[in-house]
Design a protein around this nucleic acid. Structure first.
Length: 876
RNA sequence: GGGGGCAUAGCUCAGCUGGUUAGAGCGUCCGCCUCACACGCGGGAGGUCACUGGUUCGAGCCCAGCUGUCCCCACCA
């Protein structure tokens, strides 16, 4: 107690120390405590590919706020931290780094490559953890997890085997999205379509019978090497007679059939489509319907393979140029026109996707999607904001089988072994030594790894010990809230929901709180290529973690994107400083008094007012948090602290603490301390560092704010009448200030204020406050005054009429004009009020409290009008 | 092609189940270094809540339509 606080809040000095204090106190650690209710959040594990950006900072802030709030409410609040191995992204980064050394994956081999990957993880995964700590994240670090650690890997294998045995995982030859750059298959969700300007080549395919040719158009002429048919719409009169005939595939000189299929759109292009089942998903389907051969003409690097004849060995784009030239030379090219179309690209490296037929592993989605859909439809899992469930359904209702194998090394290797002796496929949780079928010893494991999302789909339960029935799992699962951005619903949220239901029988969380994306000040997405990303660590260094957190939450509502503006962080920093200085003020005034943080026996009007306000704020903030309305909660706290507590209560308390009345002074000190201390509790989830620091510095009960009990609304602190009384005084003070300001009267020029009111005792009791805050030399309140200097300025509020003799300063004409304006405004308001009350349907249909409110307002307005009229009469 | 968001003060955004005179931050204007804070204090200006209808006693909020804008899904051979 009695600590010297710096004049301005210095977050850098405080944050590290406070975080250490929390860590030493082990406050972040949650245990399965049957006397408490669990509240669990698992972190969306950041990718180890890079450091955190402000989007993460926002995501973590929301989670930390919820966790800290629930912890203070007495829950056993667990926030499980961890990171994601991000197979394709990390592998790409490592390959890139190696290429600078002139190395490739193949050169160093799988084992050495994985060593590098683990090193990468140690370095960058560790950095992310440090960044989380700088933000103040109260994660249970004893439970730090990684998607490729032992436990998660075990869960992955368990799930793979289980799904395989149920027939929900299968291996098969399908057309998949192939990224030639990454050299792997990717899932539908990993393909981004981008609009591109391209050429539309019109080509003639001669009819075999020599009766002419059929014209078709394509954007990918090189794939003609793999054409196995030409398709037209069955109802297309132009081509009906040709169905069943054959054409000669130019350059390849092969005879292929003309088939009829409804997939073809008659009014697009020429209404004729070349069919390349191996390299186009739609063609693949057409091929299946017509039993067409599948000829793969591209290898894994998108180079034409041996099926491409003389074009073999050429990269696809080169082959395209050559083929166009050859078609032209051969007289097959009719024309080339420009076309805008969407091209699928790899969401990771942005290369153009080459659809390709290959053998991959898939998860059969139909049976998994059904119960997952039901869970959301029946609100077993609730989306915040609710409308976001539409995105979920849009995906789940049309979901296709999930391609889970990746031709990558960094990730969970598929637990499938092939017996070289008998060809048996062995799927097992533990590495098999022998072939169970033939006893053969020569087994080799599948080279492929799993899609990164296969392991993150299990994250809410694999991190709690599943598949073991651990204490943690039993106590903390299902988790409560999942906090993430809406752009990850398909990749992750949906997959966690169906996985949770399938494997644990329960949805993995009850609420999904979806927030928006943090964009730059111009509303653009933050990205490396634009260089507009913000490093939260820079912002923390500059303004403090609390300021960053507060800025990210303020004015933000669930599901909406937000622009990042540094001014907001600055404003939040200023707010932190404001609180800091309020605390300094309290210190200065209690240092010599051995105060306890408790309320005094006798409460004065101002005390009741601020306590009553605090009480309401407590209820409101709690309700807002319950509904995940963090932005609203934070706004209310801000306004209460700045306006009510600092601008009014502290100013009023100053008067009392300097007065002769020892009881009043003492009471003010107690209430200042109590209100500050308890307000810090409400503030703590949002601004954990400064709140803890100040709370510790003030007299307090208990060892730490982080585990202090969350305040609750109580009737014993509800003083509606006193609140109204002081509000009337405040209204007068503000009105006097306004008048003085309008007339440019400096604070030094004071005058006596006469208050004419039916509640004289209220104003008399607050005489000192009015004198000081409204800059008056004296204050007198009465029901009426016999003689008032007729040149006094008149100030009318809802509850009184005040005279301020300002002699020479008063311009009678101006005063009359101003009062007339006020009268008009009041009269207009009264008119609407009376119109309402005269309206029978309003009076009969509106709820009683609304009618009462209108009626009261009408009374106030009438009184105000009466007072203004009196004043106007006096001027005449 | 299907779906969704947004449109409120000069700027960026809140506005919770419809209810008195629509709010904040920043900016701006006026006055203040008032013994916590100039990262501050006091006061002011500034809004036909995109537009058109409708429901209702009452609409920024609900419904329909419309304009602009952004996004998601499907996919254009």
């Amino acid at each position: 107690m009695g600590k010297e606080l710096a004049k301005a809040y210095e977050p850098n000095e405080v944050e590290g120390r406070i975080y250490d204090f929390w860590t030493k106190g082990n406050y972040f650690h949650a245990v399965a405590d049957e006397s408490k209710t669990p509240y669990t959040i698992v972190i969306p594990p950041p990718n180890i590919t890079s450091q955190l950006h402000v989007g993460h900072a926002y995501d973590e802030t929301v989670q930390d706020t919820l966790i800290r709030w629930r912890r203070m409410q007495g829950y056993s609040a667990l926030w499980v931290p961890g990171t994601d191995h991000a197979s394709i992204a990390t592998e790409a980064k490592i390959v890139e780094a190696m290429s600078e050394e002139g190395l490739t994956k193949e050169m160093i081999g799988r084992e050495a490559f994985l060593e590098r990957a683990w090193e990468w993880n140690a370095k960058y995964g560790g950095r992310i953890i440090e960044q989380l700590k700088l933000l103040g994240s109260s994660c249970d670090w004893q439970r730090l997890r990684f998607t490729m650690d032992e436990g998660c890997s075990k869960a992955v294998r368990h799930v793979f085997v289980k799904l395989y045995e149920k027939g929900l995982i299968y291996r098969g030859e399908r057309i998949v999205n192939w990224c030639p750059h990454c050299g792997t298959a990717i899932s539908d969700a990993e393909v981004d379509f981008v609009e591109r300007d391209d050429s539309f080549w019109h080509i003639r395919y001669p009819l075999t019978d020599g009766s002419g040719y059929i014209e078709l158009a394509t954007t990918r002429p090189e794939t003609m090497l793999g054409d196995t048919a030409v398709a037209v719409h069955p109802d297309d009169e132009r081509y009906k007679h040709l169905v069943g005939k054959t054409v000669i595939l130019p350059l390849v000189n092969k005879e292929i059939p003309i088939v009829a299929d409804e997939y073809v759109e008659m009014d697009f292009g020429t209404g004729v489509v070349k069919i390349t089942p191996a390299h186009d998903p739609n063609d693949y389907e057409v091929g299946k319907r017509h039993a067409l051969p599948v000829i793969n003409i591209l290898d894994e690097k998108a180079v034409v393979n041996e099926n491409g004849g003389k074009y073999a060995g050429m990269p696809a784009l080169e082959a395209r140029k050559q083929i166009v030239k050859d078609l032209e030379d051969g007289g097959y090219l009719i024309k080339t026109e420009p076309i805008k179309h969407n091209v699928g690209t790899c969401s990771r490296c942005h290369s153009v996707i080459e659809p390709r037929v290959s053998i991959q592993w898939f998860v059969k989605m139909e049976d998994l999607a059904k119960p997952a859909n039901k869970a959301v439809r029946e609100k077993e899992v609730k989306f915040i904001p609710e409308r976001m469930d539409k995105l979920y359904f849009a995906w789940m209702d049309n979901v296709r089988d999930w391609c889970i194998s990746r031709q990558l090394w960094w990730g969970h290797r598929i637990p499938a072994w092939y017996c070289e002796t008998c060809g048996e496929i062995i799927i097992a949780e533990h590495d098999p030594a022998l072939c169970p079928k033939c006893g053969g010893e020569k087994l080799h494991q599948d080279e492929d790894t799993l899609d990164t999302w296969f392991s993150s789909a299990l994250w809410p339960f694999s991190t709690l010990g599943w598949p073991e029935e651990t204490e943690d799992f039993k106590y903390f699962y299902p988790t409560n809230t999942l906090v993430t951005a809406y752009d990850i619903i398909f990749f992750w949220v949906a997959r966690m929901i169906f996985s949770g239901i399938e494997h644990t029988g329960k949805a993995p969380f009850d609420t999904v709180m979806l927030h928006g994306l943090i964009r730059d000040a111009e509303g653009r997405k933050m990205s490396k290529s634009l260089g507009n990303g913000i490093d939260p660590v820079d912002e923390i260094n500059k303004y403090g973690a609390d300021a960053l957190r507060f800025a990210l939450v303020t004015g933000n509502s669930p599901g909406n994107d937000m622009r990042y503006r540094e001014e907001r962080v600055e404003a939040s920093r200023n707010f932190a400083n404001k609180i800091w200085n309020a605390a300094r003020f309290i210190h200065m005034n209690i240092d010599d008094h051995d105060l306890k943080c408790e309320l005094p026996e006798k409460l004065f009007l101002e005390d009741k007012w601020v306590l009553s306000r605090f009480n309401s704020i407590t209820r409101e903030v709690t309700e807002n948090l319950d509904k995940f309305e963090l932005g609203i909660a934070v706004q209310k706290l801000h306004d209460f602290i700045w306006d009510d507590f600092c601008d009014w209560y502290i100013e009023l308390a100053k008067i009392r603490m300097n007065s002769e009345d020892a009881e009043s002074a003492s009471s003010a000190r107690q209430v200042l301390l109590w209100t500050m201390s308890n307000t810090l509790k409400l503030l703590h989830p949002f601004m954990p560092f400064i709140s803890e620091e100040i709370w510790q510095s003030l007299p307090h009960e208990g060892e730490a704010l982080i585990i202090a009990q969350w305040p609750e609304y109580t009737d014993s602190l509800s003083f509606a009448e006193d609140e109204a009384k002081l509000a009337a005084v405040m209204e007068l003070i503000t009105a006097v200030r306004t008048r003085r300001s309008e007339m440019n009267v400096p604070p030094s020029k004071k005058a006596k204020l006469f208050i004419e009111t039916t509640n004289a005792e209220v104003f008399t009791a607050s005489k000192e406050a009015i004198m000081r805050l409204a800059y008056c030399s004296d204050v007198e309140a009465a029901a009426s005054f016999d003689s008032i200097d007729e040149s006094a300025v008149t100030i009318v509020t809802n509850s009184c009429k005040a005279y301020l003799p300002m002699d020479d300063l008063v311009d009678k004409a101006a005063e009359t004009a101003r009062l007339t304006k006020e009268l008009e405004s009041a009269q207009k308001q009264l008119d609407t009020v009376e119109a309402k009350l005269k309206n029978d349907s309003f009076v009969s249909k509106a709820p009683q409290n609304v009618i009462e409110g209108v009626r009261e307002n009408g009374e106030k307005l009438k009184e105000k009008i009466r007072l203004i009229n009196e004043s106007l009469a006096a001027y005449k």
